[in-house]
C-alpha cells in the first residue's frame, strides 16, 4: 500500500476526531475528562500522516532520480543505501515502487497478471503487511469515520435505557460517584446530585417540600401510569460503553402527552412516595418546559 494512501487514512482519522471536538459531539461518546486524550490523538495522527507523506515524497524523489533503474532485487540491499536508511526502509520503497509502477502505466491484462505476481513476491519482504488484506483492513479502519460522518450524531436516549439497569430514585447499581464527592453548593443540583443525596439520607420523607429544577429526558415503560414518567439522564464515567441510566419519578397529570425521549426542564418539589414497590422521593411537577438536548447530554461523576 502506498505511503500516500496511508497518510490520507491518518489524516481522515485526525479530521474525524478533530471534527468531533469542534462540533461538540465528542461528549456524546466519552466523558469530558478524556477530551485531552482525543486532542492528543489528533496531533498524533497528524504527525504520523506527515511521516507518511514525507516518506512518499522521498520515494518519489528516488524514483525520479533512479530513472527506471530497478531498485535492487528482493534480498539484496541497495548498495547505495544512504546513511540513515535501513533495509526496512529500502523494502518499503520497493513495495511502493511496485505500487507506483502499477498505477503509472496502463498495462495489458498479461502485464497486470505479472505485476500481481511480483507484488506477491515482494510481499514476503514487505514487513508482512498483507497486501491481500489491506483493502479490507483499510475499509475497516475507515468504518468509524464513515459511520461517524454519515449517521447523524445522537447521544444515547430513551431507546437505550431499556437495555440497561436503570436506577430509579436511588443509586444502588448506577455509576456510583466517587466516594466523598459532594455537590458544590454553588451550582444547582443536577439529577445525580439529588440521587446521591437521597442515598445518603435514607429517609425519603426528608426531602418533602424541597424545590428542584431539573433537566432530563422522558422515559416511560409499563411501570408508569398516565400521571408519571421518569426524568432520566445517563451517567458516563468513561465512555458510552459504561453509560448507566438514572432517573427520578416525576408526577404530573399530563405525563402521557410528553413524547418519549423529549428533553424537558422540570421544576417542582419533592414528596415522599412509592414507585414499583420502593419508597422514594417523587418530584411533583409545577412547570414542565420542553427543551433541546444540552451540549453535555450525560452526567459525569
Amino acid at each position: 500500500m502506498a505511503y500516500g494512501l496511508k497518510g490520507l487514512v491518518m489524516l481522515a482519522l485526525a479530521y474525524f476526531l478533530f471534527s468531533r471536538i469542534t462540533n461538540g459531539t465528542l461528549f456524546f461518546y466519552i466523558n469530558n475528562r478524556f477530551a485531552w486524550l482525543t486532542f492528543l490523538a489528533v496531533i498524533g495522527f497528524f504527525a504520523v500522516a506527515l511521516g507518511y507523506l514525507a516518506q512518499a515524497r522521498l520515494v518519489r524523489q528516488m524514483l525520479e532520480g533512479g530513472h527506471g533503474r530497478r531498485l535492487g532485487a528482493p534480498g539484496s540491499p541497495d548498495g547505495e543505501g544512504r546513511a540513515g536508511e535501513s533495509s526496512s526502509h529500502a523494502h518499503g520503497q520497493m513495495a511502493a515502487a511496485t505500487e507506483d509502477r502499477r498505477l503509472g502505466a496502463p498495462s495489458s491484462p498479461d502485464e497486470e497478471g505479472r505485476d500481481h505476481e511480483e507484488a506477491d513476491h515482494d510481499h514476503e519482504y514487505d514487513h508482512g503487511h498483507s497486501h491481500r488484506l489491506s483493502r479490507v483492513g483499510l475499509a475497516l479502519v475507515l468504518l468509524p469515520v464513515v459511520l461517524g460522518l454519515l449517521v447523524p450524531a445522537r447521544p444515547l436516549g430513551a431507546g437505550a435505557v431499556g437495555n440497561r439497569e436503570v436506577s430509579v430514585g436511588r443509586l444502588s447499581t448506577a455509576a456510583a460517584p466517587r466516594a466523598g464527592q459532594v455537590a458544590s453548593p454553588a451550582r444547582a443540583k443536577n439529577l445525580l446530585d439529588w440521587l446521591m443525596a437521597f442515598d445518603q439520607a435514607q429517609d425519603p420523607a426528608a426531602f418533602d417540600g424541597q424545590p428542584a429544577n431539573l433537566l432530563g429526558f422522558v422515559y416511560r415503560d409499563s411501570r408508569f401510569g398516565d400521571d408519571s414518567f421518569l426524568l432520566s439522564r445517563f451517567v458516563v464515567s468513561c465512555c458510552v460503553a459504561d453509560a448507566t441510566p438514572i432517573g427520578l419519578v416525576v408526577r404530573t397529570p399530563n405525563a402521557s402527552q410528553l413524547a418519549l425521549d423529549q428533553w424537558v426542564q422540570v421544576s417542582g418539589h419533592f414528596q415522599a412516595g412509592e414507585f414499583d414497590g420502593h419508597p422514594m422521593p417523587i418530584l411533583v411537577a409545577d412547570v414542565i418546559t420542553p427543551t433541546v438536548a444540552p451540549n453535555q447530554p450525560y452526567l459525569f461523576p
Partner: peptide, 25 residues
Amino acid sequence: RFQTFVTIFLGIFIEAVPFLLAGSL
C-alpha cells in the same frame, strides 16, 4: 437500536483509539 449501536461503537472506538495510537508510537 441502530442509532444506539453506532453511538456505543464510536464511543468505544474514540475512547480506545488514543491508547492504541500511543502504543503504536
